[in-house]
Write a protein that binds this DNA or RNA. Structure first.
Length: 465
RNA sequence: GGCCCCGUAGUCUAGCGGCCUAGGACAUUAGCUUCUCAUGCUAAGGACACGAGUUCAAAUCUCGUCGGGGUCACCA
């Protein structure tokens, strides 16, 4: 039974990279009739941000990537919050100490800082000097009795080649001598990520670990821990990094488009974001680029995941999002727009009428109002100076008054006839009309818009002062 | 700096020794459609980082150089 997981930390608003990872966890699990679960990695008390846990659930729900087990809904492997599993980690850390695969370290922060400083001065790699690794049992006991603060470190073997067969990266080798004696239990008794992740993934019977490439360098530590415990190592798949659009570094919070929130507020569709994210690093043999989640579950082949980091391209996301909008049922788009502008109280019937006019003109929901505001209130200013065109509009007014059946076709007919009569080029004629009606040089089709606005309102807008 | 990963157009990629005159998509430019914009359709420009080697043949294999990224915490 395939089991995948997302293990976020409650440290703030979800990052788009988290969703990217969840996408592959979720899809892989679904594809193999497995389960996708969530575990909260809240072992860093210093970085804890209240409320983040809820926001994570909301985000996952928005994308439709709900876990089948989580801290909120529970499950057979509970608890799912690491802060509630402390005794478990303690137990396993003790086990490691007994097996001599870990040891107490009483070094002070000051000593470690100094040591690192010296190492750097000598251009050496900053690594723990294993000072406490060979402490005698007596001394250890004495320190423990005297309540000297300690951490527990893993005892990395001297000369061992650690081989990882990554589902995405392939075979990667590490030499154990380049690996630090990592802290696994902190002075506050909490485990570090490295211990907690290994223990929990094993206990929760996780079979496949998908995560960002930034984790690759710490994976040998995890492999070592699995070996210490004599546990089966789950499959690993290190996903290509998503880079900032300028290519400088991984997608970071410096850029607002790293946050899920950003897309929500701009009216991107979650299904389009997911499609874009999948397409960013994964290639469909048939060259298909547009596929929804269910289709992706059918098509996905892990072997086709790329190996380079990919820059996040907002323009392409816009393109994908535009396609999803164009393919949407009018009623659905109407609902989405109403929901997006729910605090504006737009009249739903009018919005529905405007949908056919704007469906192929907007790329995201937030494009709607800038394009359509004139339907709901008369323009307060014009993008073109109309001061010397009063007479012209008066003539149009007279002409349009005669139109009794206020329908697109008849409005257009009347307008074109007038243009001909006045010997004004259509382009000029309609541009002036467009500006007086909508206030802007760019708008949905004019005749259709005028029908929706209704005769009385249009005539009113033709009178300017 | 050590370790690890990676190098095809501005961006994401296809390519697995001859089918490559290097294919597709976004973006860009031009044209058509047209009352603006958008959609749609058509077309154009634009790439194998560099250098050696292996081979009858290299984007593709090897080595080196250069470049990019990740990571080196009692953070995850």
């Amino acid at each position: 039974m395939v089991r995948t997981r997302i293990a976020p930390s409650p440290t703030g608003y979800p990052h788009i990279g988290t969703i990217y990872q969840v996408l592959f966890d979720y899809v892989y699990a679904k594809q193999h009739n497995g389960k996708f679960i969530m575990r909260l990695e809240d072992t860093d008390q210093a970085r804890f941000v209240p409320g983040s846990e809820d926001v994570i659930y909301k985000s996952l729900e928005w994308f439709g990537l709900n876990p089948e087990e989580s801290p909120k809904i529970g499950g057979p492997y509970k608890p799912y919050r690491q802060s509630e599993r402390l005794p478990i980690y303690q137990k396993y850390a003790k086990e490691l100490i007994e097996k001599k695969h870990a040891y107490y370290c009483f070094c002070t922060k000051e000593r470690l800082d100094e040591m690192r400083k010296e190492q750097q001065a000598k251009k050496m790699n900053p690594m723990y000097d294993k000072h406490c690794r060979n402490l005698g049992q007596k001394e250890v006991n004495k320190n423990l009795e005297n309540k000297i603060p300690f951490v527990i470190r893993m005892a990395v073997p001297e000369n061992q080649t650690i081989i990882l067969n990554d589902l995405i990266v392939g075979e990667v080798k590490f030499e154990s001598k380049t690996i630090d004696d990592q802290v696994i239990i902190k002075a506050d008794g909490y485990p570090t990520y490295h211990l907690a992740v290994v223990v929990d993934d094993h206990l929760m019977e996780i079979t496949h670990i998908f995560r960002g490439r930034e984790w690759l360098p710490s994976t040998p530590k995890h492999v070592l821990l699995y070996q210490f415990f004599e546990w089966k190592i789950p499959e690993h798949g290190h996903l290509p990094l998503i880079l900032n659009s300028d290519g400088k570094g991984k997608l970071s919070k410096r850029f607002n488009h790293a946050s899920v929130d950003y897309y929500h507020h701009l009216g991107y569709l979650p299904e389009a974001i997911l499609n874009y994210l999948a397409n960013l690093v994964w290639f469909h043999e048939g060259g298909k680029e547009i596929y929804d989640l269910n289709e992706f579950i059918k098509l996905f082949d892990i072997k086709k995941i790329g190996s380079q980091g990919a820059r996040f391209d907002l323009q392409k996301l816009d393109w994908v999002n535009g396609i999803y909008i164009r393919n949407m049922k009018q009623e659905t788009l109407n609902e989405k727009i109403m929901d997006f502008y729910k605090d504006k109280n737009l009249p739903k019937d009018i919005v529905l009428k405007t949908i056919p006019l704007i469906q192929e003109r907007i790329k995201k929901l937030s494009d709607y109002l800038p394009l359509c505001e004139f339907f709901f209130k008369a323009p307060e200013k014009y993008e073109v100076d109309l001061a010397n065109k009063k007479d012209f509009f008066k003539q149009v007014h007279q002409e349009l008054e005669k139109v009794t059946d206020w329908k697109t076709g008849l409005i257009g007919e009347s307008l074109i006839n007038l243009a001909k009569k006045l010997e004004i080029k259509n382009s000029q004629f309609f541009m002036d009309m467009r500006v007086v009606i909508t206030g802007k040089k760019i708008s949905p089709p004019l005749n259709e818009s005028m029908e929706i606005l209704e005769k009385e309102e249009c005539l009113r807008r033709l009178t300017i002062d």
